[in-house]
Design a protein around this nucleic acid. Structure first.
Lengths: 153, 153
DNA sequence: TATATAAATAGGAGTAGTTACTGTTATGAA
DNA sequence: TTCATAACAGTAACTACTCCTATTTATATA
């Protein structure tokens, strides 16, 4: 590396067609889609895109704070084009995720930061429940099997 | 079903040897092990047990509120023999999970319950950070690649 | 505008964690 | 003791994701 230094310590994000379309599609919706759903949305505009590319870009975009990664309940990861801090509710039946109007809680973070030995980077707060659609349907086989219903902290 | 009704709507949990040992081992530790770790703990006492049995029982025990399932940050699910409400910190590097001394927040639940359309069942609150051990080590390849560091809500 | 090069791509194989299936065994109510 | 059913072991299958390689592309610089 003897040429003019390229300063790759903070090289700007290269905006490929694929990356641009992924970001664009994600910002168009408020539905918090999974990688696979995004793959299908993007494929309508870029039929040749590969699923690996979608995963890689979602990882890079969220690593750069341009989108939000919602990884919470064992089920598939979801993504959110809205990067402002806000909270989510997830339906335990269908997995759907919605936004919650709830002010942020800096007090929480402060309470934890002192004295647990960890270097706290942040927290994830997610509510679980049953969405309006699923509330009308009968219980699933799995829910009936769980004798106490879902138990969460 | 014409015999004396067996009332299977709330049939008691059958306590098999496998189930008892799983519960017992889980209650002995405070380390929030994964299914695979529990499998290895239990195998020392029941060499013939199968991984499927461990998974099934962890599912049933948590469905009955006898243990807690911690499914949070994309990585493997973990389990906790302590069912009292409490919160966790997870290390983003090694995945280790520790308990947090933090009083509960009923206020949160009340705030959400009204007016989001969901039937709220509960919430999951998890802090992420870097544990004391990992804090001493250099960054991973993946962490260096993420130009902004980890971004969480 | 042309060129060099690091970054990103498609396609596909590989993996971890989990679930589902099948035939067998054990539990516990009667 | 009997018997229905729940739970079992063993294993195949599945889902969500990651990693690999050869090729292409975006961008900085000349």
């Amino acid at each position: 590396m003897n040429k003019k230094s390229r300063d790759n310590s903070k090289s700007p994000l290269r905006m490929t067609r694929q990356r641009r379309v992924i970001l664009d599609e994600l910002r168009k919706v408020t539905s918090h889609p999974t990688a696979d759903e995004i793959y299908n949305m993007v494929r309508r505009r870029l039929p040749g895109i590969s699923l690996g590319t979608v995963y890689r870009n979602l990882e890079i975009l969220s690593g750069n704070g341009m989108i939000q990664k919602i990884e919470s309940s064992g089920s598939a990861r979801r993504y959110d084009g809205n990067v402002k801090i806000h909270y989510h509710v997830r339906c335990v039946r269908c997995g759907r995720v919605d936004d919650l109007p709830l002010s942020t809680l800096p007090v929480l973070e402060r309470a934890v930061r002192k004295g647990c030995g960890y270097e706290i980077l942040g927290y994830s707060l997610e509510f679980v429940g049953i969405c309006p659609n699923c509330g009308k349907l009968p219980k699933t086989k799995k829910e009936r099997q769980d004798k106490n219903g879902t138990q969460r902290k």
